Every structure is written in structure tokens, then in C-alpha cells.
Amino acid sequence: MGNTSSRVTAQDKAILDLKLQRDKLHQYQRRISVLTERETAAARQLLAAGDRRRALLALRRKKYQESLLAKTDDQLAQLEQLTRSVEFALIQKDVLFGLRQGTRVLREIHAEMGGLDHVEKLMGETADAIAYQKEVSEMLGGRMTNQDEDEVEDELAALEQEVNGPAAAAAADALPSVPDTKLPEPRAAEQQRQRQEPEPERTAVLAS
């Protein structure tokens, strides 16, 4: 209960008081309506009994009650209008509070974005970057001339030489050198060579 009552604001209490006064006026109107009906019934009975003077007095009391009833109608209309105005004012207050909070959040976001100048600059840089990328894509997509292709190929070959040259040289230095020794001749080749050479003794006899 304590927590509930602590959440009731002065505005809520004011609206509640207005509604309580409205309910009391409604109860008062019901009582007056009952009285006017009674006065009407009493005047009818008095006339039936031949007492015109007292019947006229009952109708006068009824007329007075009806005037009070008309006054309560005006008061009820004012209370209803005031209650609606207060309730609408509270709604407006909540709306204004929400607008104030939203405006504060928007300002914080704009501050984080760096302001309008920064956004325009960023958008311009983004547009330039997109345009440059589009230009490059179009050029690479088939708008290059044969000379451009040759230049690109030459540049690629130079880069490959620059990147792979030191590695290829290092790999060549790491390989073993080819031996320079003469391999033994086959046996058949050796026999053929011996047949072609003259025997030493026969050569000496022919010479004497």
C-alpha cells in the first residue's frame, strides 16, 4: 500500500477529487429527481382530494427542485470539462517529456556523428571512393588497350623477376657441381682399340 500511494502524484489526486465531486453531483441529482416525482404525485393526490392550495404548493416545491437540478447540470458540465482538460494536459505533458527525451537523444547521436559538416564530408569521400572503384572496374572489365595490356604484362614479368630472382639464384647455388672426371670406356670399345694398334715385336722385325 505504501508503494502504491507513493506513486500517486498531485495531478492524479486532483483528477480523483474532480471525479469524486462529479459523482456527488450525480447522487444529488438522483435525490432531486426522486423529490420532484414525489411532489408531482402529492399534487395529483391533493387535487383529487379537492385541496387545490396545497397542490399548488407541492408544484412550487417541485419547480424549486427542478431549478436546483438545472444548476447541478451546469456544475456537472463544468466538472466534466475541467476533468477532461486536466487529463488531456497530463497527456500533453507526457508527450512533451517524450519529445524532450527524443530531442536530447538525437542531439547526442548528431554529436557522435560529428555534425552536418562531417557527414557531408564523409558522404563526399564515400562518393569519390565509389566513383574511383567503378572507374577501375570498368577499365579492368575490357576498356584496356593492347598497349595497356602489354605494359601490364611487362610490369608483371618484372615483378616476378624481382620476387623470384633471388630465390632462383639461391636454389642454383645449393645444387652440387657436375664432376669433370672421364668415365671408363666400355670393354668392347677397349678391345677394338687394341686390335687397331700394331704389336710391338712384329713392328720391330719389320723395321730390321
Rank of each mutant, 00 (worst) to 15 (best):
106 L>I: 11
199 E>N: 08
105 V>A: 01
30 R>H: 02
41 A>L: 15
108 E>H: 02
170 A>S: 13
28 Y>T: 15
111 A>E: 09
118 H>V: 01
23 D>W: 05
77 A>Y: 15
14 A>N: 07
191 Q>W: 10
185 E>A: 04
158 A>C: 02
102 G>N: 06
122 L>Q: 01
127 A>C: 06
54 R>A: 15
143 R>G: 00
165 G>T: 01
88 F>I: 08
26 H>T: 08
85 S>G: 09
174 A>P: 00
85 S>H: 12
41 A>P: 01
119 V>T: 11
123 M>T: 06
14 A>H: 14
136 V>S: 11
135 E>G: 14
93 K>D: 05
68 L>V: 05
199 E>D: 13
89 A>V: 01
71 K>Y: 05
101 Q>P: 03
15 I>D: 15
52 R>I: 02
201 E>W: 01
103 T>F: 05
71 K>L: 12
122 L>R: 03
159 L>E: 11
16 L>C: 04
115 G>K: 00
200 P>Q: 06
102 G>T: 10
163 V>N: 00
103 T>D: 14
105 V>T: 08
188 A>T: 05
172 A>T: 05
187 R>N: 03
95 V>S: 07
176 P>D: 05
56 L>N: 02
57 L>D: 04
202 R>V: 09
175 L>R: 11
161 Q>C: 01
154 D>C: 04
60 R>T: 06
53 R>C: 03
23 D>A: 15
11 Q>K: 05
104 R>M: 02
41 A>N: 12
34 V>N: 12
149 E>Y: 13
117 D>S: 11
150 D>E: 11
128 D>G: 01
149 E>L: 08
149 E>R: 15
200 P>T: 10
201 E>Y: 07
30 R>M: 13
28 Y>E: 12
16 L>V: 09
111 A>M: 02
28 Y>K: 15
30 R>N: 10
59 L>K: 14
88 F>A: 13
109 I>M: 10
25 L>N: 09
198 P>I: 02
135 E>T: 12
89 A>S: 11
124 G>A: 08
70 A>S: 12
173 D>E: 12
119 V>N: 00
49 A>K: 08
143 R>Q: 06
18 L>R: 08
138 E>G: 09
208 S>C: 03
64 Y>I: 09
35 L>F: 08
98 G>I: 04
175 L>V: 05
3 N>G: 13
2 G>N: 14
74 D>I: 05
75 Q>G: 09
70 A>F: 11
191 Q>D: 04
108 E>D: 05
176 P>H: 03
88 F>G: 01
5 S>L: 14
203 T>P: 00
78 Q>W: 10
58 A>T: 02
96 L>T: 10
199 E>H: 02
112 E>T: 03
75 Q>W: 15
179 P>T: 01
164 N>I: 08
9 T>M: 12
192 Q>Y: 08
116 L>A: 12
106 L>T: 13
207 A>Q: 04
29 Q>F: 07
56 L>A: 14
174 A>G: 10
85 S>F: 07
37 E>T: 07
165 G>D: 01
111 A>Y: 02
30 R>V: 02
158 A>G: 03
47 L>C: 10
152 V>Y: 11
37 E>I: 04
66 E>F: 06
11 Q>L: 14
149 E>S: 14
88 F>H: 10
53 R>L: 05
80 E>L: 13
54 R>C: 06
4 T>M: 10
126 T>W: 00
8 V>Q: 13
96 L>G: 06
66 E>W: 07
54 R>P: 04
